[in-house]
Amino acid sequence: MTVHPAVLITGASTGIGAVYADRFAGRGHDLVLVARDLARMEALAERLRRETGVAVDIIKADLTDAADLATIETRLREDARIGVLVNNAGAGAAGGFLEQTPDDLTKLINLNVVALTRLANAVAPRFAREGQGAIVNLASVVGLAPEIGMSVYGATKAFVLFLTQGLNLELGPKGVYVQAVLPAATRTEIWERSGRDVNTIQGVMEVDALVDAALVGFDRRETVTIPPLQDLGQWIAFDQARQAMVPNFLQSEPAERYRKAA
């Protein structure tokens, strides 16, 4: 009988995180759900236990709170049953950079960057020792396209993509799979929380479709999964162009164009 690792999912009470919970439960994985909304998690857990028979633990936590974050880090370090971390919790911020306050931006960065990184850091050493495990980081296409706007949000998601690619190079040879999922606009409550009407946005993907596509990438062991991108060749060309520049970065002298006055 195959024993499936347990899956810890952050931001699991609704939206993308809740659908990940549904799908992994359907595959026979026990779950650890982490979010601020206890009532929603309890309702989700009750349904999943009833429908799939898996065990579901619930941890009410605000990942921008240092004590709550430390609780989840400890669980990831010490619970050997957990073999998959889905770093889904994230937020946007209303308005543009000029309207956003320092407190707004600090909270955004603490959730989208600091908490995600600390949770990955908590579990990665154990996964590496065991020679197995998976870390799924929810990024965004906005992290590749400053033209879309959302400057600080996009910067946090660019960080998540870079971190994932770096961890793939570092941890992949040790048997640890690391995936970045890059949604475009998806029908979740993040829009309402950031002060935007999702119905005014073009090309919004439904959550079920997004997660099902992301799991296809997960099963294929893709490092970067971009569900809305129809032409895979565009991403391959982009990544190959990036990699082709790397040797040219390692130069002891400035490029010729910078050695002449304008």
Rank of each mutant, 00 (worst) to 15 (best):
A255Y: 05
V114D: 09
V54P: 00
D79F: 11
L111D: 07
D57R: 14
G15E: 03
G149W: 10
A209R: 07
E206Q: 13
E130N: 09
G96A: 11
V114S: 07
A158N: 03
A66F: 01
W191R: 06
Y20T: 10
F159T: 07
L167G: 03
R27L: 09
D103P: 00
L215H: 12
A25V: 11
T71S: 13
A55H: 07
A255S: 08
G203T: 03
F127K: 10
L44Y: 04
L144E: 08
V19Q: 08
L163G: 03
I16G: 01
E206I: 00
V32K: 00
G26W: 09
M245Y: 06
A180E: 00
D68T: 12
A128T: 09
Q179A: 11
G143E: 03
G166Y: 01
L169R: 15
H4W: 04
T188R: 05
G133I: 14
E147S: 15
V3A: 04
H29K: 06
G131V: 10
Q165V: 13
E192A: 15
E42F: 02
A261V: 13
N199F: 04
W235R: 15
G90N: 04
T200N: 13
L76Y: 08
L138M: 15
V34N: 06
E78V: 10
I58N: 00
E206P: 01
G166H: 02
L167W: 14
